[in-house]
Design a protein around this nucleic acid. Sequence first.
DNA 1: AAAAGCGTTCCGATAAGCGAAACAGATGGA
DNA 2: TCCATCTGTTTCGCTTATCGGAACGCTTTT
Lengths: 261, 261
Amino acid sequence: MPPGAKDPYHLASLHRGLEVLGCFARRPSWSLAELAAELGQSKPTLFRVLHTLEAAGYLAKDGAGRYAPGLALHALGASAVRQEQLRWQSLPPLQVLAEETGETVHVGILHEGEVVTVQVVEGTHALRMHARVGKRGPAHASALGKALLAYLPDAELEAILARHGLPRFTPRTLATPEALREALHRIRQQGWAPDDEELEPGLRCLAAPITDHTGRPSAALGLSAPAARMDAARREALVPRVKAAALQVSRMLGSPGAMAA
Amino acid sequence: MPPGAKDPYHLASLHRGLEVLGCFARRPSWSLAELAAELGQSKPTLFRVLHTLEAAGYLAKDGAGRYAPGLALHALGASAVRQEQLRWQSLPPLQVLAEETGETVHVGILHEGEVVTVQVVEGTHALRMHARVGKRGPAHASALGKALLAYLPDAELEAILARHGLPRFTPRTLATPEALREALHRIRQQGWAPDDEELEPGLRCLAAPITDHTGRPSAALGLSAPAARMDAARREALVPRVKAAALQVSRMLGSPGAMAA
DNA sequence: AAAAGCGTTCCGATAAGCGAAACAGATGGA
DNA sequence: TCCATCTGTTTCGCTTATCGGAACGCTTTT
Protein backbone atom coordinates (compact mmCIF):
# COMPACT_ATOMS: atom_id res chain seq x y z
CA MET A 1 0.00 0.00 0.00
CA PRO A 2 2.84 2.51 0.66
CA PRO A 3 4.51 3.84 -2.50
CA GLY A 4 6.62 1.39 -4.39
CA ALA A 5 4.30 -1.58 -4.73
CA LYS A 6 1.23 -0.72 -6.78
CA ASP A 7 -1.94 -2.71 -6.47
CA PRO A 8 -3.84 -3.13 -9.73
CA TYR A 9 -7.02 -3.97 -7.84
CA HIS A 10 -7.11 -0.84 -5.81
CA LEU A 11 -10.04 1.53 -6.30
CA ALA A 12 -8.80 4.96 -5.32
CA SER A 13 -12.21 6.56 -5.11
CA LEU A 14 -13.59 3.88 -2.82
CA HIS A 15 -10.46 3.95 -0.72
CA ARG A 16 -10.81 7.67 -0.15
CA GLY A 17 -14.41 7.20 0.87
CA LEU A 18 -13.40 4.62 3.44
CA GLU A 19 -10.74 6.94 4.80
CA VAL A 20 -13.40 9.57 5.26
CA LEU A 21 -15.63 7.10 7.09
CA GLY A 22 -12.69 6.20 9.27
CA CYS A 23 -12.44 9.80 10.38
CA PHE A 24 -15.98 9.58 11.68
CA ALA A 25 -14.97 6.71 13.92
CA ARG A 26 -12.71 9.15 15.75
CA ARG A 27 -14.77 12.30 15.71
CA PRO A 28 -18.52 12.50 15.15
CA SER A 29 -18.59 15.78 13.30
CA TRP A 30 -16.44 17.11 10.45
CA SER A 31 -16.60 19.95 7.98
CA LEU A 32 -15.40 19.58 4.43
CA ALA A 33 -12.43 21.83 5.07
CA GLU A 34 -11.39 19.91 8.18
CA LEU A 35 -11.43 16.63 6.29
CA ALA A 36 -9.50 18.18 3.43
CA ALA A 37 -6.80 19.24 5.87
CA GLU A 38 -6.81 15.91 7.73
CA LEU A 39 -6.57 13.74 4.66
CA GLY A 40 -4.59 16.04 2.40
CA GLN A 41 -7.16 15.98 -0.36
CA SER A 42 -8.46 18.71 -2.61
CA LYS A 43 -11.81 20.22 -1.77
CA PRO A 44 -13.64 19.24 -4.98
CA THR A 45 -12.55 15.65 -4.57
CA LEU A 46 -13.74 15.48 -1.00
CA PHE A 47 -16.92 17.26 -1.92
CA ARG A 48 -17.75 14.48 -4.33
CA VAL A 49 -16.90 11.83 -1.76
CA LEU A 50 -19.06 13.47 0.90
CA HIS A 51 -21.86 13.99 -1.57
CA THR A 52 -21.88 10.32 -2.48
CA LEU A 53 -21.69 9.22 1.15
CA GLU A 54 -24.56 11.51 1.98
CA ALA A 55 -26.70 10.29 -0.93
CA ALA A 56 -26.16 6.74 0.27
CA GLY A 57 -27.25 7.65 3.79
CA TYR A 58 -23.86 6.97 5.34
CA LEU A 59 -23.44 10.60 6.31
CA ALA A 60 -25.90 13.38 6.99
CA LYS A 61 -25.58 17.09 7.52
CA ASP A 62 -26.36 18.29 11.01
CA GLY A 63 -27.81 21.64 12.03
CA ALA A 64 -24.84 23.60 10.76
CA GLY A 65 -23.38 22.51 7.43
CA ARG A 66 -21.25 19.88 9.15
CA TYR A 67 -21.28 16.19 8.34
CA ALA A 68 -22.24 13.54 10.88
CA PRO A 69 -22.80 9.77 10.75
CA GLY A 70 -26.02 8.91 8.94
CA LEU A 71 -28.68 6.28 9.26
CA ALA A 72 -27.03 3.73 7.00
CA LEU A 73 -23.84 3.93 9.00
CA HIS A 74 -25.76 3.47 12.18
CA ALA A 75 -27.60 0.44 10.83
CA LEU A 76 -24.37 -1.07 9.56
CA GLY A 77 -22.67 -0.40 12.85
CA ALA A 78 -25.44 -1.91 14.91
CA SER A 79 -25.36 -5.04 12.81
CA ALA A 80 -21.58 -5.39 12.95
CA VAL A 81 -21.53 -4.81 16.68
CA ARG A 82 -24.23 -7.35 17.32
CA GLN A 83 -22.45 -10.05 15.34
CA GLU A 84 -19.07 -9.36 16.83
CA GLN A 85 -20.60 -9.27 20.25
CA LEU A 86 -22.14 -12.70 19.93
CA ARG A 87 -18.94 -14.03 18.49
CA TRP A 88 -16.54 -12.82 21.14
CA GLN A 89 -18.81 -12.89 24.15
CA SER A 90 -19.52 -16.52 23.49
CA LEU A 91 -15.87 -17.50 23.27
CA PRO A 92 -14.98 -17.77 26.98
CA PRO A 93 -17.94 -19.97 27.92
CA LEU A 94 -17.24 -22.13 24.88
CA GLN A 95 -13.64 -22.54 25.93
CA VAL A 96 -14.63 -23.60 29.42
CA LEU A 97 -17.17 -26.08 28.14
CA ALA A 98 -14.76 -27.53 25.58
CA GLU A 99 -12.06 -27.83 28.22
CA GLU A 100 -14.31 -29.53 30.75
CA THR A 101 -15.94 -31.96 28.33
CA GLY A 102 -13.19 -32.44 25.76
CA GLU A 103 -15.75 -32.09 22.97
CA THR A 104 -16.17 -29.59 20.15
CA VAL A 105 -18.62 -26.81 20.99
CA HIS A 106 -19.95 -24.11 18.67
CA VAL A 107 -22.34 -21.23 18.31
CA GLY A 108 -24.44 -20.66 15.21
CA ILE A 109 -27.18 -18.48 13.86
CA LEU A 110 -29.96 -19.09 11.36
CA HIS A 111 -29.68 -17.36 8.04
CA GLU A 112 -31.96 -17.88 5.08
CA GLY A 113 -32.95 -21.25 6.40
CA GLU A 114 -29.43 -22.48 7.02
CA VAL A 115 -27.23 -22.68 10.07
CA VAL A 116 -24.12 -20.51 9.94
CA THR A 117 -21.33 -21.28 12.40
CA VAL A 118 -20.26 -18.10 14.18
CA GLN A 119 -17.77 -19.41 16.71
CA VAL A 120 -16.10 -22.74 17.41
CA VAL A 121 -13.84 -24.24 20.02
CA GLU A 122 -12.60 -27.68 19.09
CA GLY A 123 -12.43 -30.49 21.62
CA THR A 124 -9.31 -32.19 22.91
CA HIS A 125 -10.02 -35.82 21.89
CA ALA A 126 -8.23 -37.17 18.85
CA LEU A 127 -11.55 -38.20 17.33
CA ARG A 128 -13.58 -35.04 17.34
CA MET A 129 -15.97 -33.10 15.20
CA HIS A 130 -14.37 -30.64 12.87
CA ALA A 131 -16.11 -27.29 12.41
CA ARG A 132 -15.15 -23.97 10.93
CA VAL A 133 -16.42 -20.45 11.41
CA GLY A 134 -18.55 -19.35 8.47
CA LYS A 135 -19.60 -22.86 7.49
CA ARG A 136 -23.22 -23.30 6.44
CA GLY A 137 -25.35 -26.37 6.97
CA PRO A 138 -28.92 -27.66 6.85
CA ALA A 139 -31.08 -26.53 9.75
CA HIS A 140 -33.40 -29.53 10.03
CA ALA A 141 -30.58 -32.03 10.43
CA SER A 142 -28.51 -30.46 13.18
CA ALA A 143 -29.05 -29.80 16.85
CA LEU A 144 -28.09 -26.15 16.42
CA GLY A 145 -30.54 -25.74 13.56
CA LYS A 146 -33.44 -27.40 15.33
CA ALA A 147 -32.87 -25.37 18.48
CA LEU A 148 -33.35 -22.28 16.33
CA LEU A 149 -36.19 -23.54 14.13
CA ALA A 150 -38.15 -24.44 17.25
CA TYR A 151 -38.71 -20.81 18.18
CA LEU A 152 -39.49 -19.49 14.71
CA PRO A 153 -42.96 -18.16 13.81
CA ASP A 154 -44.96 -20.71 11.83
CA ALA A 155 -44.87 -18.65 8.65
CA GLU A 156 -41.11 -18.47 8.64
CA LEU A 157 -40.75 -22.17 9.27
CA GLU A 158 -43.09 -22.80 6.32
CA ALA A 159 -40.99 -20.57 4.08
CA ILE A 160 -37.80 -22.38 5.01
CA LEU A 161 -39.35 -25.79 4.41
CA ALA A 162 -40.64 -24.62 1.04
CA ARG A 163 -37.27 -23.27 0.07
CA HIS A 164 -34.90 -25.96 1.25
CA GLY A 165 -37.12 -29.01 1.66
CA LEU A 166 -36.01 -31.76 4.06
CA PRO A 167 -33.19 -33.62 2.30
CA ARG A 168 -32.25 -36.91 3.94
CA PHE A 169 -28.64 -37.43 4.99
CA THR A 170 -28.90 -40.57 7.14
CA PRO A 171 -31.65 -43.05 7.97
CA ARG A 172 -32.41 -41.00 11.09
CA THR A 173 -32.80 -37.60 9.40
CA LEU A 174 -36.19 -36.04 10.10
CA ALA A 175 -37.33 -35.97 6.49
CA THR A 176 -41.05 -35.27 6.86
CA PRO A 177 -42.71 -32.06 8.04
CA GLU A 178 -44.70 -34.03 10.60
CA ALA A 179 -41.65 -35.60 12.19
CA LEU A 180 -39.87 -32.24 12.28
CA ARG A 181 -42.82 -30.40 13.80
CA GLU A 182 -43.20 -33.03 16.49
CA ALA A 183 -39.48 -32.78 17.28
CA LEU A 184 -39.64 -28.99 17.46
CA HIS A 185 -42.57 -29.23 19.84
CA ARG A 186 -40.58 -31.37 22.21
CA ILE A 187 -37.58 -29.07 21.89
CA ARG A 188 -39.68 -26.12 23.00
CA GLN A 189 -40.89 -28.10 26.01
CA GLN A 190 -37.50 -29.29 27.20
CA GLY A 191 -35.47 -26.27 26.15
CA TRP A 192 -32.79 -28.12 24.21
CA ALA A 193 -32.43 -29.93 20.90
CA PRO A 194 -30.82 -33.31 20.12
CA ASP A 195 -29.22 -34.63 16.95
CA ASP A 196 -28.91 -38.40 16.91
CA GLU A 197 -26.85 -39.17 13.81
CA GLU A 198 -29.29 -37.23 11.67
CA LEU A 199 -26.65 -35.46 9.62
CA GLU A 200 -23.76 -37.88 9.72
CA PRO A 201 -23.66 -41.48 10.98
CA GLY A 202 -21.83 -41.70 14.27
CA LEU A 203 -22.19 -38.01 15.13
CA ARG A 204 -24.40 -36.91 18.01
CA CYS A 205 -25.03 -33.37 19.19
CA LEU A 206 -27.15 -31.34 21.55
CA ALA A 207 -27.86 -27.63 21.49
CA ALA A 208 -29.67 -24.94 23.47
CA PRO A 209 -30.95 -21.57 22.31
CA ILE A 210 -29.25 -18.25 23.11
CA THR A 211 -31.57 -15.28 23.55
CA ASP A 212 -30.43 -11.77 22.64
CA HIS A 213 -31.15 -8.41 24.24
CA THR A 214 -34.70 -8.44 22.87
CA GLY A 215 -35.33 -11.83 24.45
CA ARG A 216 -35.60 -13.60 21.11
CA PRO A 217 -33.66 -16.85 20.51
CA SER A 218 -31.32 -15.54 17.80
CA ALA A 219 -28.48 -17.99 18.15
CA ALA A 220 -27.77 -21.42 19.61
CA LEU A 221 -24.92 -23.13 21.39
CA GLY A 222 -24.17 -26.78 20.68
CA LEU A 223 -21.87 -29.63 21.64
CA SER A 224 -20.91 -32.40 19.22
CA ALA A 225 -19.36 -35.78 19.99
CA PRO A 226 -18.92 -39.17 18.34
CA ALA A 227 -21.67 -41.62 19.26
CA ALA A 228 -19.09 -43.77 21.01
CA ARG A 229 -18.70 -41.10 23.70
CA MET A 230 -22.30 -39.92 23.75
CA ASP A 231 -24.62 -42.52 25.18
CA ALA A 232 -27.92 -41.63 26.82
CA ALA A 233 -26.34 -41.27 30.25
CA ARG A 234 -23.61 -38.89 29.15
CA ARG A 235 -26.04 -36.81 27.16
CA GLU A 236 -28.27 -36.57 30.18
CA ALA A 237 -25.31 -35.25 32.14
CA LEU A 238 -24.32 -32.78 29.44
CA VAL A 239 -27.73 -31.19 28.87
CA PRO A 240 -27.63 -28.92 31.92
CA ARG A 241 -24.09 -27.79 31.12
CA VAL A 242 -24.94 -26.86 27.55
CA LYS A 243 -28.05 -25.07 28.76
CA ALA A 244 -26.03 -23.24 31.39
CA ALA A 245 -23.45 -22.11 28.86
CA ALA A 246 -26.17 -20.85 26.50
CA LEU A 247 -27.79 -19.02 29.38
CA GLN A 248 -24.51 -17.43 30.32
CA VAL A 249 -24.02 -16.08 26.80
CA SER A 250 -27.63 -14.87 26.78
CA ARG A 251 -26.97 -13.01 29.98
CA MET A 252 -23.89 -11.36 28.54
CA LEU A 253 -25.92 -10.22 25.56
CA GLY A 254 -28.35 -8.51 27.93
CA SER A 255 -31.20 -10.93 27.51
CA PRO A 256 -34.01 -9.94 29.87
CA GLY A 257 -35.18 -13.50 30.41
CA ALA A 258 -31.71 -14.73 31.35
CA MET A 259 -31.00 -12.06 33.94
CA ALA A 260 -32.73 -13.63 36.91
CA ALA A 261 -31.25 -17.11 37.04
CA MET B 1 -30.48 8.61 -8.23
CA PRO B 2 -32.63 6.38 -10.47
CA PRO B 3 -32.05 6.80 -14.23
CA GLY B 4 -33.15 10.09 -15.70
CA ALA B 5 -31.53 12.60 -13.40
CA LYS B 6 -27.77 12.33 -13.41
CA ASP B 7 -25.72 13.57 -10.52
CA PRO B 8 -22.39 15.08 -11.50
CA TYR B 9 -21.07 14.61 -7.97
CA HIS B 10 -21.72 10.92 -7.82
CA LEU B 11 -18.73 8.58 -7.49
CA ALA B 12 -19.79 5.28 -9.00
CA SER B 13 -16.95 3.27 -7.53
CA LEU B 14 -17.55 4.51 -4.00
CA HIS B 15 -21.27 4.01 -4.34
CA ARG B 16 -20.79 0.40 -5.32
CA GLY B 17 -18.53 -0.12 -2.33
CA LEU B 18 -21.18 1.26 0.00
CA GLU B 19 -23.80 -1.01 -1.56
CA VAL B 20 -21.53 -3.94 -0.79
CA LEU B 21 -21.13 -2.82 2.80
CA GLY B 22 -24.90 -2.49 3.03
CA CYS B 23 -25.21 -6.16 2.17
CA PHE B 24 -23.13 -6.99 5.22
CA ALA B 25 -25.65 -5.21 7.40
CA ARG B 26 -28.17 -7.86 6.38
CA ARG B 27 -26.02 -10.95 6.24
CA PRO B 28 -22.64 -11.44 7.91
CA SER B 29 -21.07 -13.61 5.26
CA TRP B 30 -20.97 -13.32 1.46
CA SER B 31 -19.04 -14.83 -1.38
CA LEU B 32 -18.00 -12.84 -4.41
CA ALA B 33 -20.47 -14.71 -6.59
CA GLU B 34 -23.36 -14.13 -4.18
CA LEU B 35 -22.71 -10.43 -4.12
CA ALA B 36 -22.42 -10.35 -7.90
CA ALA B 37 -25.85 -11.94 -8.16
CA GLU B 38 -27.38 -9.77 -5.45
CA LEU B 39 -26.12 -6.48 -6.85
CA GLY B 40 -26.10 -7.33 -10.53
CA GLN B 41 -22.45 -6.45 -11.00
CA SER B 42 -19.74 -8.16 -12.98
CA LYS B 43 -17.30 -10.31 -11.12
CA PRO B 44 -14.12 -8.37 -11.93
CA THR B 45 -15.74 -5.17 -10.75
CA LEU B 46 -16.83 -6.69 -7.49
CA PHE B 47 -13.49 -8.35 -7.08
CA ARG B 48 -11.83 -4.94 -7.14
CA VAL B 49 -14.35 -3.54 -4.68
CA LEU B 50 -13.90 -6.42 -2.26
CA HIS B 51 -10.16 -6.26 -2.62
CA THR B 52 -10.15 -2.58 -1.70
CA LEU B 53 -12.52 -3.08 1.21
CA GLU B 54 -10.37 -5.89 2.48
CA ALA B 55 -7.15 -3.89 2.16
CA ALA B 56 -8.77 -1.12 4.19
CA GLY B 57 -9.79 -3.57 6.91
CA TYR B 58 -13.50 -3.13 6.35
CA LEU B 59 -13.88 -6.72 5.28
CA ALA B 60 -11.89 -9.84 6.00
CA LYS B 61 -11.93 -13.36 4.64
CA ASP B 62 -13.16 -15.99 7.06
CA GLY B 63 -12.13 -19.63 7.24
CA ALA B 64 -13.50 -20.45 3.80
CA GLY B 65 -12.89 -17.87 1.09
CA ARG B 66 -15.97 -15.92 2.16
CA TYR B 67 -16.00 -12.28 3.14
CA ALA B 68 -17.06 -11.09 6.60
CA PRO B 69 -17.07 -7.73 8.38
CA GLY B 70 -13.56 -6.65 9.31
CA LEU B 71 -11.97 -4.81 12.16
CA ALA B 72 -12.36 -1.34 10.68
CA LEU B 73 -16.06 -1.91 10.16
CA HIS B 74 -16.39 -3.11 13.70
CA ALA B 75 -14.58 -0.07 15.07
CA LEU B 76 -16.65 2.26 12.96
CA GLY B 77 -19.83 0.53 14.01
CA ALA B 78 -19.00 0.62 17.68
CA SER B 79 -18.29 4.33 17.46
CA ALA B 80 -21.48 5.11 15.54
CA VAL B 81 -23.57 3.04 17.90
CA ARG B 82 -22.10 4.69 20.96
CA GLN B 83 -22.79 8.16 19.68
CA GLU B 84 -26.30 7.39 18.51
CA GLN B 85 -26.96 5.63 21.75
CA LEU B 86 -26.06 8.63 23.86
CA ARG B 87 -28.08 10.85 21.60
CA TRP B 88 -31.33 8.91 21.58
CA GLN B 89 -31.15 7.34 25.00
CA SER B 90 -30.80 10.78 26.50
CA LEU B 91 -33.83 12.19 24.72
CA PRO B 92 -36.65 10.90 26.93
CA PRO B 93 -35.09 12.07 30.22
CA LEU B 94 -34.35 15.42 28.61
CA GLN B 95 -37.94 15.77 27.50
CA VAL B 96 -39.24 15.03 30.96
CA LEU B 97 -36.86 17.50 32.56
CA ALA B 98 -37.66 20.23 30.02
CA GLU B 99 -41.37 19.64 30.47
CA GLU B 100 -41.21 19.76 34.25
CA THR B 101 -38.94 22.79 34.51
CA GLY B 102 -39.82 24.69 31.35
CA GLU B 103 -36.14 25.31 30.69
CA THR B 104 -33.82 24.28 27.88
CA VAL B 105 -31.85 21.12 28.65
CA HIS B 106 -29.04 19.62 26.63
CA VAL B 107 -26.39 16.91 26.46
CA GLY B 108 -22.88 17.55 25.25
CA ILE B 109 -19.51 15.86 24.91
CA LEU B 110 -15.98 17.18 24.97
CA HIS B 111 -14.08 17.14 21.72
CA GLU B 112 -10.65 18.63 21.19
CA GLY B 113 -11.14 20.94 24.10
CA GLU B 114 -14.56 22.19 23.08
CA VAL B 115 -18.08 21.27 24.08
CA VAL B 116 -20.17 19.79 21.29
CA THR B 117 -23.94 19.70 21.76
CA VAL B 118 -25.27 16.23 21.05
CA GLN B 119 -28.92 16.56 21.97
CA VAL B 120 -31.22 19.42 22.95
CA VAL B 121 -34.77 19.87 24.17
CA GLU B 122 -35.84 23.50 24.29
CA GLY B 123 -37.85 24.87 27.19
CA THR B 124 -41.38 26.23 27.02
CA HIS B 125 -40.83 29.79 28.27
CA ALA B 126 -40.82 32.57 25.68
CA LEU B 127 -37.43 33.73 26.95
CA ARG B 128 -35.25 30.70 26.74
CA MET B 129 -31.80 29.60 25.76
CA HIS B 130 -31.39 28.66 22.15
CA ALA B 131 -29.20 25.67 21.36
CA ARG B 132 -28.57 23.51 18.35
CA VAL B 133 -27.24 20.01 17.91
CA GLY B 134 -23.69 20.06 16.60
CA LYS B 135 -22.87 23.48 17.98
CA ARG B 136 -19.41 23.91 19.49
CA GLY B 137 -18.49 26.15 22.39
CA PRO B 138 -15.72 26.92 24.89
CA ALA B 139 -15.39 24.37 27.67
CA HIS B 140 -14.15 26.61 30.46
CA ALA B 141 -17.08 29.00 30.22
CA SER B 142 -20.05 26.63 30.32
CA ALA B 143 -21.53 24.35 32.91
CA LEU B 144 -21.44 21.41 30.51
CA GLY B 145 -17.81 22.04 29.69
CA LYS B 146 -16.72 22.37 33.29
CA ALA B 147 -18.58 19.24 34.32
CA LEU B 148 -16.47 17.40 31.75
CA LEU B 149 -13.17 19.16 32.36
CA ALA B 150 -13.43 18.33 36.04
CA TYR B 151 -12.90 14.62 35.46
CA LEU B 152 -10.11 14.90 32.90
CA PRO B 153 -6.57 13.71 33.65
CA ASP B 154 -4.28 16.59 34.49
CA ALA B 155 -2.22 16.22 31.32
CA GLU B 156 -5.27 16.50 29.10
CA LEU B 157 -6.51 19.55 30.94
CA GLU B 158 -3.08 21.13 30.45
CA ALA B 159 -3.17 20.41 26.74
CA ILE B 160 -6.59 22.00 26.38
CA LEU B 161 -5.54 25.10 28.28
CA ALA B 162 -2.43 25.40 26.14
CA ARG B 163 -4.43 25.03 22.99
CA HIS B 164 -7.47 27.19 23.63
CA GLY B 165 -6.39 29.44 26.49
CA LEU B 166 -9.08 30.94 28.72
CA PRO B 167 -10.71 33.71 26.70
CA ARG B 168 -12.92 36.03 28.71
CA PHE B 169 -16.55 36.45 27.63
CA THR B 170 -18.05 38.27 30.65
CA PRO B 171 -16.68 39.75 33.85
CA ARG B 172 -17.43 36.47 35.56
CA THR B 173 -15.63 34.15 33.15
CA LEU B 174 -12.99 32.05 34.89
CA ALA B 175 -10.05 33.46 32.98
CA THR B 176 -7.11 32.22 35.03
CA PRO B 177 -5.88 28.65 35.42
CA GLU B 178 -6.00 29.00 39.20
CA ALA B 179 -9.65 30.07 39.25
CA LEU B 180 -10.58 27.27 36.88
CA ARG B 181 -8.71 24.61 38.83
CA GLU B 182 -10.33 25.69 42.05
CA ALA B 183 -13.75 25.57 40.42
CA LEU B 184 -13.10 22.11 38.99
CA HIS B 185 -12.05 20.90 42.42
CA ARG B 186 -15.35 22.01 43.89
CA ILE B 187 -17.23 20.46 40.98
CA ARG B 188 -15.65 17.07 41.68
CA GLN B 189 -16.65 17.35 45.32
CA GLN B 190 -20.27 18.29 44.77
CA GLY B 191 -20.86 16.30 41.57
CA TRP B 192 -22.28 19.14 39.51
CA ALA B 193 -21.04 22.26 37.73
CA PRO B 194 -22.48 25.80 37.73
CA ASP B 195 -22.23 28.58 35.15
CA ASP B 196 -23.09 32.00 36.57
CA GLU B 197 -23.17 34.31 33.57
CA GLU B 198 -19.69 33.24 32.60
CA LEU B 199 -20.40 32.88 28.91
CA GLU B 200 -23.22 35.35 28.37
CA PRO B 201 -24.60 38.00 30.75
CA GLY B 202 -27.96 36.95 32.12
CA LEU B 203 -27.51 33.24 31.35
CA ARG B 204 -27.13 30.72 34.16
CA CYS B 205 -26.69 26.97 33.83
CA LEU B 206 -25.94 23.86 35.80
CA ALA B 207 -24.71 20.51 34.58
CA ALA B 208 -23.91 17.03 35.83
CA PRO B 209 -21.65 14.38 34.30
CA ILE B 210 -22.94 11.30 32.50
CA THR B 211 -20.81 8.18 32.82
CA ASP B 212 -20.66 5.61 30.04
CA HIS B 213 -20.40 1.83 30.11
CA THR B 214 -16.76 2.03 31.15
CA GLY B 215 -17.67 4.25 34.09
CA ARG B 216 -15.88 7.27 32.67
CA PRO B 217 -17.67 10.65 32.53
CA SER B 218 -17.85 10.97 28.75
CA ALA B 219 -20.78 13.36 28.46
CA ALA B 220 -22.72 15.85 30.55
CA LEU B 221 -26.32 16.92 30.91
CA GLY B 222 -27.13 20.57 31.55
CA LEU B 223 -30.01 22.95 32.15
CA SER B 224 -29.91 26.62 31.10
CA ALA B 225 -32.16 29.46 32.21
CA PRO B 226 -32.15 33.26 32.26
CA ALA B 227 -30.82 34.68 35.50
CA ALA B 228 -34.26 36.12 36.21
CA ARG B 229 -35.62 32.60 36.74
CA MET B 230 -32.52 31.09 38.30
CA ASP B 231 -31.83 32.52 41.74
CA ALA B 232 -29.90 30.59 44.36
CA ALA B 233 -33.02 28.96 45.75
CA ARG B 234 -34.26 27.65 42.43
CA ARG B 235 -30.85 26.39 41.48
CA GLU B 236 -30.67 24.55 44.79
CA ALA B 237 -33.95 22.89 43.91
CA LEU B 238 -32.86 22.01 40.39
CA VAL B 239 -29.51 20.43 41.24
CA PRO B 240 -30.90 17.06 42.35
CA ARG B 241 -33.16 16.86 39.31
CA VAL B 242 -30.34 17.49 36.87
CA LYS B 243 -28.17 14.99 38.71
CA ALA B 244 -30.99 12.45 38.64
CA ALA B 245 -31.50 12.89 34.89
CA ALA B 246 -27.78 12.48 34.24
CA LEU B 247 -27.73 9.39 36.41
CA GLN B 248 -30.67 7.96 34.52
CA VAL B 249 -28.90 8.38 31.20
CA SER B 250 -25.74 6.87 32.69
CA ARG B 251 -27.74 3.88 33.79
CA MET B 252 -29.19 3.43 30.31
CA LEU B 253 -25.68 3.48 28.87
CA GLY B 254 -24.76 0.62 31.16
CA SER B 255 -22.59 2.61 33.53
CA PRO B 256 -21.42 0.33 36.33
CA GLY B 257 -21.38 3.10 38.93
CA ALA B 258 -24.92 4.20 38.15
CA MET B 259 -26.49 0.77 38.41
CA ALA B 260 -26.97 0.62 42.14
CA ALA B 261 -28.91 3.79 42.87
C1' DA C 1 -15.54 48.04 3.99
C1' DA C 2 -12.46 44.73 3.37
C1' DA C 3 -10.78 40.20 4.07
C1' DA C 4 -10.89 35.64 4.96
C1' DG C 5 -13.23 31.59 5.30
C1' DC C 6 -16.50 28.37 3.81
C1' DG C 7 -19.01 25.18 0.39
C1' DT C 8 -19.95 24.83 -4.45
C1' DT C 9 -19.43 24.87 -9.60
C1' DC C 10 -16.92 24.74 -14.06
C1' DC C 11 -13.77 22.65 -17.20
C1' DG C 12 -10.29 20.27 -19.87
C1' DA C 13 -6.62 16.47 -19.51
C1' DT C 14 -5.58 12.09 -17.78
C1' DA C 15 -5.58 7.76 -16.31
C1' DA C 16 -8.72 5.14 -13.47
C1' DG C 17 -11.62 1.55 -13.76
C1' DC C 18 -15.08 -0.97 -16.59
C1' DG C 19 -16.66 -5.67 -18.74
C1' DA C 20 -15.78 -9.45 -22.16
C1' DA C 21 -13.24 -13.11 -22.26
C1' DA C 22 -9.80 -16.22 -20.85
C1' DC C 23 -7.53 -18.78 -16.96
C1' DA C 24 -6.75 -21.72 -13.02
C1' DG C 25 -8.16 -24.42 -8.85
C1' DA C 26 -11.55 -26.62 -6.32
C1' DT C 27 -15.61 -29.36 -6.09
C1' DG C 28 -18.75 -32.79 -7.29
C1' DG C 29 -21.35 -35.87 -10.03
C1' DA C 30 -21.43 -39.82 -13.37
C1' DT D 1 -11.48 -41.74 -13.13
C1' DC D 2 -12.74 -38.10 -16.01
C1' DC D 3 -15.57 -34.52 -17.26
C1' DA D 4 -18.69 -30.62 -16.08
C1' DT D 5 -19.20 -26.77 -13.43
C1' DC D 6 -18.63 -24.11 -10.10
C1' DT D 7 -15.52 -20.85 -7.81
C1' DG D 8 -12.01 -16.67 -7.63
C1' DT D 9 -8.42 -14.42 -10.40
C1' DT D 10 -5.95 -12.20 -14.29
C1' DT D 11 -5.36 -9.84 -18.70
C1' DC D 12 -6.39 -6.14 -21.96
C1' DG D 13 -8.01 -2.34 -24.68
C1' DC D 14 -11.61 1.38 -24.79
C1' DT D 15 -14.19 4.85 -22.53
C1' DT D 16 -15.64 7.83 -19.59
C1' DA D 17 -15.39 8.66 -14.79
C1' DT D 18 -13.08 11.70 -11.94
C1' DC D 19 -9.22 14.81 -10.49
C1' DG D 20 -7.49 19.41 -9.24
C1' DG D 21 -6.75 24.34 -10.54
C1' DA D 22 -9.26 28.15 -10.62
C1' DA D 23 -13.21 30.88 -10.17
C1' DC D 24 -17.66 31.79 -7.84
C1' DG D 25 -21.08 33.29 -4.43
C1' DC D 26 -22.00 33.41 0.46
C1' DT D 27 -21.46 34.05 5.29
C1' DT D 28 -18.67 35.33 9.06
C1' DT D 29 -14.84 37.92 10.99
C1' DT D 30 -11.89 42.03 11.44
